[in-house]
């Protein structure tokens, strides 16, 4: 067995004693995974969004017709997801900046993760309310 393979085995053995045989990752790793996923999704949305906005150069009616789909219940719900994804990406990006440029950043990366998740919830609860209020009222309240 090569040196690196035996070293890997030693590290794996040390890890498995504490957490079982499956590597489940540190919260820092999951914050990175979520940063990638929210970033890629937002980039794809940006592509579609520039195309739909470009319809203002075709005609007001063409634009208004497509914008109406943004006001339908299912797309409205997806917009809440979009805002949630962008807000997470922004807050975690700020955390990355602090880890990179603030002397205490690396040591505080985990408390900063819990902090941004707290801010995310505090902003998303009223945000989702304002975004969905009219849709929910029209779906269940008659007008």
């Amino acid at each position: 067995m090569s040196d690196s393979a035996s070293a890997t085995e030693k590290v794996a053995a040390r890890g498995s004693r504490r957490t079982g045989t499956l590597y489940r990752g540190d919260p820092g790793m999951w914050s990175w995974v979520a940063h990638r996923i929210t970033g890629v999704l937002t980039f794809f949305f940006l592509f579609a969004h520039v195309l739909d906005t470009a319809l203002v150069r075709v005609s007001p009616n063409a634009y208004d017709e497509v914008i109406e789909t943004y006001k339908t219940p299912i797309v409205n719900l997806i917009e809440v997801g979009l805002v949630g994804a962008v807000l997470y990406h922004a807050l975690n990006g700020l955390r990355v900046l602090l880890v990179d440029f603030w002397s205490k950043g690396p040591r505080l990366q985990k408390p900063m993760l819990w902090t941004i998740l707290g801010i995310w919830v505090v902003v998303m609860v009223p945000g989702a309310y304002f975004m969905l209020e009219r849709t929910v009222r029209e779906l269940f309240g008659g007008n």
Partner: peptide, 19 residues
């Protein structure tokens, strides 16, 4: 996102005239 989706009726007030 705040202006377009959350404030003052959000997405429901967006149309050509708004743009």
């Amino acid at each position: 996102l705040l202006i377009m989706n959350i404030l003052d009726g959000g997405v429901h007030r967006i149309n050509f005239a708004f743009v």
